[in-house]
Design a protein around this nucleic acid. Structure first.
Lengths: 328, 328
DNA sequence: CTGAAAGCGCTTACAG
DNA sequence: CTGAAAGCGCTTACAG
């Protein structure tokens, strides 16, 4: 491999000067030309590890994902990448596979790799996690969960869920079933459920155990939850099902369709996420658009800003939009 | 930041010994314990840039994607990540956004970042690209395109397309339209088109210009292509449409549905890709499963093997599976 | 405008 | 089993 020393020798200058020229420092026209010619000829590529060791900056930002092969994640990453790539940063990607311990491990790992900042899509909130973030002392953005002491961008889960129920009620639904996920996940599990429950209460609608089920984000679990709800509530079927994610909503639709229910006439369905699929299945699914890509962009911008100068921790709430389609 | 020198001082040993202990070299029980205690207490995290500078290994593998927010890409990355993460490698992700020049730029960039190997999902094949790969002198895998002189894993595009046509013919279709993409893309653009054309020829079926259209991978372009085909072929409509990607097939279905065509009775549709959507739209889409995740895993395994010891360049063909569903 | 020197945080022969 | 020394490829005061 050719190094800066080789270039210096070949161009008959010191390596100091080579470094300067390459980093846009001063140099006489003559010297600059000589150096650039050698660089071209040799195809010299500076070692970023050496540079990073010296400057304490790597030009890499770490992204920690709960699951890589998910539409939400890939939209977010795409948004992040779009803004950081423009500033010549790359993304070091890690995937926790929904394993909480790995969130912590990866923060430490990314730290050891000298990333200039981290964006975390957490699935839970706990003390050990926030402590690790604190200890890392890196520019840090949490996306999707409100982490104490950490700059966070969150979706407005409570109001989004609440709005879905409002909309369902305005379509004359009184019996609204619910497919949620575990409460370890404060955003998707807790807040969306609270939005559902509180809004039912606001309208004096009955909340029934039999109309609530808990899935695990997958399409299959949505299917199973719908089955469970329908089975358990013989005699008094719900007239609508609200699932906290599109995938589970789509699974539910599948079950309902199989059982001969007409959507939305017999049972309406709504989800959250505005997945591509939600638009293209039939009937098209009523859902909430969270603008994941924009959230990713924003996270990246905030991170970049934080890298430039230390900032107060802040909290941001992403807007969302209810998309009413044929499933209600 | 605490460094190896701090640890050495606090544990009263040389940094040589600290390094040895941390890398599982010899050390007396006593010394090892002393060091580990200090490491725990301080939360010491070794600098991987320093290590990488010294050892010429980074523990990072570079992945170059044409487009990050695509189901194929995210499946592949997920497969790659699954195998490399087990060996404690991370992925440095780059996205060319379909820009050919960036494929080249990113190879050089990844090289400068001292990645231990690169997996490229190319969208085209040209001399400059293969030259750059050659010059990088890194373990390298091409996934999805057959790159001369580079170990490549390719999908069996020709036969997959051909099999789709065989299947369509066996369902008594004689008038088969085609939605393709540009031929700059040897795999998706050229091979799949050839599979289509050759197989029609084999059955002595007519090939009509009006029944062929070119999209750009997007759902919308599939919609437009279907529109164009239907418009242009008044009098003699095709009885089936084969789109070279699921997304375009889904766009086509949308147009057909809008126009009141019954799928598959009036016009059958088939795609390639086995996207999640293909399974959940209705009618469900007949398609070809390329096992993208497995391809990613294989690419990662080959890369890891290549990193261990230099290998001959090899060519691998991924298997595929035709999935016949309700759209034909 | 240019260069000699120091140093970033590690690892690895080499010697003991 | 342990340590002193050299070196990986850069950048950056400092001096001229």
């Amino acid at each position: 491999m050719t190094t800066i020393n080789d270039i210096a020798k070949m161009a008959n200058v010191s390596r100091t000067t080579v470094s300067r020229v390459l980093n846009n420092g001063y140099a006489s026209e003559d010297v600059r030309k000589r150096i650039m010619r050698v660089v071209e000829e040799t195809g010299y590529i500076p070692s970023l590890s050496a540079k990073s060791l010296r400057t304490k900056k790597s030009g890499v930002i770490g992204v920690i994902l709960p699951k890589i092969s998910t539409e939400t994640a890939s939209r977010v990453v795409s948004g992040i990448n779009e803004v950081v790539a423009k500033k010549d940063f790359q993304i070091l990607l890690t995937d926790t596979e929904l394993d909480k311990q790995k969130e912590i491990d990866y923060i430490r790992l990314l730290q050891s790799r000298h990333v200039d900042g981290i964006i975390l899509l957490a699935t839970n909130v706990n003390k050990q996690l926030t402590d690790t973030i604190e200890a890392a002392g890196l520019p840090f953005i949490s996306l999707g969960q409100d982490l104490p002491g950490v700059t966070s961008i969150v979706y407005d889960d409570y109001h989004a869920a609440s709005d879905v129920i409002n909309m369902l009620v305005s379509h004359n639904h009184q019996k609204i079933a619910f497919i949620g996920v575990g409460e370890e996940d404060p955003s998707v599990g807790k807040l969306r459920r609270m939005g559902y429950l509180d809004t039912l209460t606001k309208y004096n609608l009955s909340i029934k155990e039999e109309w609530m089920a808990e899935g695990d984000f997958s399409i299959e679990s949505g299917y199973e939850c719908a089955k469970k709800i329908i089975k358990n509530s013989e005699g008094e079927l719900p007239s609508a099902i609200f699932a906290v994610t599109d995938r589970m909503a789509i699974g539910a639709m599948e079950y309902l369709r199989e059982q001969g229910f007409n959507i939305p006439d017999d049972i309406a369905v709504a989800g959250i996420g505005a997945s591509t699929m939600s638009k293209h299945i039939s009937p098209s699914l009523t859902t909430v658009d969270y603008f994941n890509k924009e959230a990713g962009e924003k996270a990246a911008q905030l991170l970049l800003a934080q890298m430039k100068k230390k900032k107060e921790k802040e909290k941001f709430i992403q807007t969302y939009r209810l998309i009413i389609r044929d499933s209600v």
